[in-house]
């Protein structure tokens, strides 16, 4: 009888430990998924600033047009990884980088305006 109780207690404890570990892993995975960083690029005086932005995978980059002329944010890759509409003054465009790599981009209205995002 005593032995049966011991086995039952042991099994119960094991189940609780496994359940606790499993929940912890799930929470950690969920937290990792929800953890998104943010970065900003300012468009002003016919240039992107910073010209080279280094971010980690999952980061959302937001471009804000602070210039007094429209600009676009257009990927130089083929096919294009991202492409904004024409951004007026104070308008924003955001894109989340989910793959590592180097992403050159430019303004399609003023193609001399170039910059890149490095995703690590």
């Amino acid at each position: 009888m005593r032995r049966s109780v011991s086995v039952a207690v042991f099994i119960t404890v094991e189940i609780l430990v496994i359940a606790a570990l499993s929940t912890g892993r799930q929470n950690a995975a969920l937290a990792a998924q929800q953890k998104t960083e943010a970065a900003e690029v300012k468009i002003d005086n016919f240039s992107f600033g910073p010209a080279t932005l280094t971010v980690s995978v999952g980061t959302t980059v937001t471009w804000t047009n602070r210039d007094d002329i429209p600009h676009t944010v257009t990927s130089a890759d083929d096919p294009k990884a991202f492409k904004s509409k024409v951004l007026d003054t104070d308008e924003k465009f955001s894109f989340t980088f989910t793959q590592p790599g180097t992403y050159p981009y430019f303004c399609s209205i003023h193609p001399k305006m170039t910059a890149k995002v490095v995703v690590q």
């Binding site: 016919f46 430019f106 399609s108 003023h110 193609p111 001399k112 305006m113």
Partner: peptide, 12 residues
Amino acid sequence: MSEGFLGTSAPL
């Protein structure tokens, strides 16, 4: 996209 040749920020 090709850049312009007049020395401004314009495309070709």
